Amino acid sequence: MTIHPEIAKVLRSIPAPDGSPLDPVAMRAGEAAQVPPLEDRIPLHAVEDTIASTDAGEVPVRIYTPVDADSYGLIVYLHGGAFFLGSLDTHDHVARSLAKETGHKVISVGYRLAPEAAFPAGLADSYGVVRWAAEQGQALKWNGRTLAVAGDSSGGNFAAAVTAMAREDGFSGITHQILFYPSLDLDFDVDRYASMRENAEGYGLETAGLKPFNAFYLENGADPADPLVSPIKRVDLSGLPQALILTAEHDPLRDEGELYGQRLKEAGVDATVHRYAGANHGFVANFSWLPEFYRAFREAGDFLNGTPSDRPA
């Protein structure tokens, strides 16, 4: 299927890269300027900013409560942004949609970013908040049944790595993982996956841009050969929580997400992989205003709540 016409329209308006070095401060400011005003966001029962006290330190979090209820399943959400972009504000709409469509309380993590924070600071923050959420179960009205981790792009990388950290740490509380077009292999060999060449140019995220965008992370202690940096390199995936992996047809990272799902299945993990036709990398964060892509949040709800998905076969 060709790229969705609305995505194509947006892509045509984006200027081509001029080859100048990436400026994290300027790029973050540009992202912040695009955050919609509060009155234009999805209303929920409650949204609260607080600090999670973790073994990694004090981590800012934003807690989204969809409705007034006696108890909730929990989702710890890790935003994308190539490890150096993204924030609680830039991905506020994603967290709100997750809460609304799953009925779960969402805890969005303001983890430390590269290059200011070297590896494994952001990952340690993310895992620390998962443990904090479990420890704060009574205060959060956790139902004691569902504790999911979810993330998009580099946040999907963190979500996958966090499940492995939990297994190694003997923490069995994580019940589900939801990975939206995850970045799981930071060895950017263009011949490693067919999608790296098939979707190399013209779809927003370009194969040639992967190295410079991820350099802030990789040049600050993150080794692509480390399974905590490239989760797909983990040899033993058994015992990890059940997974929902949503990939995009026109994404250089498509094949690594789908291979990870296949490897989870081979390791005995219940894993569902769904490729969204006509979509590009970032479709959940950037194009969820299109009904066919907003459906990803409902699919996440079906996955967590054990209900049949309404997605096309």
Rank of each mutant, 00 (worst) to 15 (best):
A194S: 15
D169F: 10
Y64M: 06
Y77Q: 00
A134T: 09
V94Q: 01
R197Y: 14
G173L: 10
L98T: 01
G173I: 11
Y77K: 03
D189P: 13
L179R: 02
V61D: 03
G170N: 11
A161Q: 03
E135A: 15
V106D: 07
H91P: 03
Q138T: 14
D68H: 12
S172M: 13
T175L: 08
Y127W: 12
H91T: 01
N199M: 11
L184A: 07
A133N: 10
G128S: 05
K141V: 05
L140Q: 02
L179D: 10
V109F: 01
D185V: 01
Q177C: 14
A82G: 12
Y181V: 03
F84V: 09
Y181D: 03
Q177E: 11
G110R: 05
S154K: 07
S71V: 13
V76F: 02
W132H: 01
F84W: 15
R167M: 13
A164P: 07
A200N: 12
A160D: 07
V162G: 01
L184D: 08
D169M: 12
F188E: 07
E201T: 15
P66Q: 06
D187G: 12
V130M: 02
A133M: 02
W132M: 00
P60D: 10
V76G: 10
S126C: 14
I107V: 11
G73I: 06
P182N: 08
I75G: 04
E198A: 14
V94R: 00
R96P: 06
A117Y: 11
M196Q: 05
H104G: 03
V76Y: 00
A166Q: 09
L98V: 00
A133Q: 05
A134S: 13
A134N: 08
G73P: 07
A118D: 12
A160W: 04
D125G: 13
